[in-house]
Design a protein around this nucleic acid. Sequence first.
DNA 1: TTATTATTTAAGCAAATACTTAAATAATAC
DNA 2: GTATTATTTAAGTATTTGCTTAAATAATAA
Lengths: 124, 124
Amino acid sequence: MENNSCIRQQADIKQINRCKDTVSELSESFDHLANGLSLVGNSVRLKILYLIFEEKRLCVCDLSDILGMNISAISQHLRKMKDRNLLTTEREAQTIFYSLTTEYSTLLNPFFEILDKNKILATT
Amino acid sequence: MENNSCIRQQADIKQINRCKDTVSELSESFDHLANGLSLVGNSVRLKILYLIFEEKRLCVCDLSDILGMNISAISQHLRKMKDRNLLTTEREAQTIFYSLTTEYSTLLNPFFEILDKNKILATT
DNA sequence: TTATTATTTAAGCAAATACTTAAATAATAC
DNA sequence: GTATTATTTAAGTATTTGCTTAAATAATAA
């Protein structure tokens, strides 16, 4: 697994060890955060999140129509994001509406703002 | 490609069309942003970014040692992030140091802060 | 109860991603 | 010049991810 040459001659051993400690301390945090960000780092899911952010709530069917994609495909994306607590659902008869959880709404806001700015640029 | 049933009876056509417009207007923005976020949404790369953020600059060799991973694997991660302008390099003799670009340093700061907080919790 | 509408889930396949190995490039030391 | 150190790149493999199809669940309407 580990091989190759290196460990450079003038490596700062203190620094290396400090970094190793950080990595082992935060190991789970890194995994958890990366997993959350990987959900947002997909253009279909990013679109879904932004649309829900703008429209407050949407159902699978709406999103399927808007994005021109299979309902099943959208449903599977929504599931992943619900599992990771980016989205919540509320049922209204047969329709299930998805909306952003407040926590992720705040966290993702800087990115939505970037998109908002681009939107202004695109329309003018 | 598109099939299935749906388009719910009481769908808000205006809303659907407004959303379709947004998606087509921002299509490239979505792709670009999602691509950037997908880079951060990988635990190895997130670790690399956070370590470089903390230590200001690191070389492949250091990172390989810290993360217990193949130099080649790290190098390929660094390349991707350099290509997408998350990282810059400066050469010092045979060693190439990677550091964060200011733009992404700002953008990623909220996430680094989350990790910082967890670090305090982990050590106390 | 059966039919319809809205949605989810499971299985399979295809494309993308991450890591390994080995070879290539590049700067310094001898 | 050759040898060494630091790094990148290319090719192959294996795992993961996203989408398709088909079947399952769940609420409402007839």
